[in-house]
Structures are given as C-alpha cells and as structure tokens.
Design a protein around this nucleic acid. Sequence first.
DNA 1: TATTCGTGGTC
DNA 2: TGACCAAGAAT
Length: 361
Amino acid sequence: MANDLLKASHEFREQLLAWYETHHRKLPWRAPPGETADPYHVWLSEVMLQQTTVKTVIPYFQGFLRRWPTLEALALSEREEILSAWAGLGYYRRAMNLHACARTVMEDYNGTFPNSEQELLKLPGIGPYTAAAIAAIAFSRPANVIDGNIERVIARYCLINTPLPAAKAEIARRASKLAPTQSAQRPGDYAQALMDLGAMICTPKAPSCGRCPVQRSCSAFAQGAAEKLPLRLKKPVKPLRRGAAFLIYRGDSLLLRRRPEQGLLAGMMEVPGTGWTSEPPSKQALLAAAPITAKFAKLRGLVRHTFTHFELELTVYRTQLPGDYDEPITQRDPRLKWVAKHELPRQALPSVMRKVIAHDQ
DNA sequence: TATTCGTGGTC
DNA sequence: TGACCAAGAAT
C-alpha cells in the first residue's frame, strides 16, 4: 500500500536523522546539524572529495581556504597557483574546472552559487552527484544525492542483487523513494547522514550492523547478506606501461616540462622523458626524448606508480651540467623550465613526478 | 554505455 | 603483495 511506503520512508529518515544528531562527523566544511554551510566551502569540499578520501582532502581544503578565503579570491588567482596547490590530490582536471567554475560564478552569477541542481549542473566540474550535494547541503533543497557510500547503503538496505554499475538506475529509484521531498525534512543533513552511515557503520568490509540505526528495516541484514553487497563486475587487470625520465640538473636547478592541456596529468609539470608504452623505450627513443645531448647515468631500480587504468615503470637517467651551461633549450622548447631545488615544493608536480625526483636522493 | 582521468590507504 | 576502492566528471 502506498501509505505504508510513505510511512516506512518517513521512519527511515527519522531514524537516520536522529542518529546523525549524535554520531555525525565534524568536518571542516560542515555546519552543525540543522544549519546550512557556506556554499563556497561546500562546493570546494565536494569537488575535492570526488573519488578522494576525507582524510586526504582535509589538509588540502584547509590550505585552499587559507590561501583563497573567498570565491572571488580563487577566481582572481592564476591557474598555475591552483594547479600547484592541487598537486598530489590527483584527477587534475578538477583543478582546471575549479578555476573555470569560480570565474563563471563570479562573471555569470554575480558571485553567488545558483541554488538549483539544474543550474549547478551547467557549471564546469559539477556533475549529477555534486549538483545534488550542493543543492541539498548548502541550500536545503530536496535532492537525490547518491555517492559511493549511499550506493552501498541503498544496495544493502533494499537488497539489490544486480551488480554495479548496472544497478545504478535501480539504486537511484529506490533512493529517491526514501529521500526528503521538502526543505523541512533537512535534505542536507539527510544526505550527510547517509554518507556518514556508509563511512562509519555500513562500511565496505565488515559493516557494524549491530550499531546501525536502520538495522530493523534493512533487507540485507535480514538475509545476512550485508557484507557481500553491493555486487560488482570484475575490473580488468591494469596493463603495464614503461618509459624513461631524465633528471637534468644545471647547478642546483632541475629541468622541468609542462604537460599538454589535455589527457593524463593535464597541465601539470613533469620531468622530461619518453612516452609511456607497453615496450621499454628503445635506444633511439631515448635519444629522441632527451632534451639535451649529455652523458647520462642510469639510476638503479625503477620508479613504479599505479594510475587508474595502468601501471607505470620508469627508468630514471641523471646528468649534472655546470652552473653556467647556457645552451638555450628553454627557448627552443617553451614547455621547458629550469626550477631551483628549493622551489620544487611549490611546483605543480604530480606524485609520480615527485617520486622520480626523490628516486635520485 | 564505456573510457579516461590519481593517489594513498586498507586488509 | 595485490586487489579493492574513496563525497565522480567529462567525453
């Protein structure tokens, strides 16, 4: 009966919100239960949290807020500063979109984030999840917020046996039946409560069903099936790619190169090197990729790094040029740049490149 | 619908 | 150690 379903979803929300009052996590971008947080903080944190753990995000979020206390400050900043501050967080396209989004909101929205999912979705770097999350958390707008945590919670609560990602549509339908439909039902707290439940109780492995506020109505718990859900299709094994990188020092400076605007590590800095291919680079490839002709020493060992869809093994070569070496290579190739050692921490160097540099020491 | 995008932590 | 995976978006 439709009435029973309404009653069940109402009880679900009540139990969840009651639990949230006393068990929520205190996070730097959050407002206390019952209040809405600053849209700038919500947006910044949500973008950083895309496929990234809370623990990793916290110091970056605090660093960004210190450096750019307002949306306007961020919009006025140079992209290079933002890329440098983002270095290490991964998914670097997010940093570009962050900058573009800040400028768009300043220019087209008078510096104020739109409060509807529909408008938020138009902004760069804001997809279905982030639009729903900002609308709910910053503006108390009813929205069907679904992230990885909520996906897992719903798959268990509703005993959805279809494997992901095929189950996404079904999970969204079931979640929408439970979610708030009006502001008074605290959509922001509801979304964050579900996420906290997923992070602290309904965890991927060994869920703590004994402490779960909605255990009594959880279908997976009733079947003893919570831990095995959600099912997932097996992921293909990651191929191995190989390449070489050249550490070229001139005095105390290191030669770096800007990566292309598109693709992997877009717009970030790198140690110059070969392309990354399934076969190790040939001698010709090495010669062609080296920015200068010099006597290189091959360093012992390899730098290994795991990307989302492949593994990488880099051989590192090193050379030391005299401090007055003056071949104008940075003019011949404008992507190249000499960077003093003490400036390296402030460069837009992704983790894999920091590994390459550290491999030397 | 399927790929391409990082990184660090966990078990 | 290796496989999994975390507040997904863009194409």
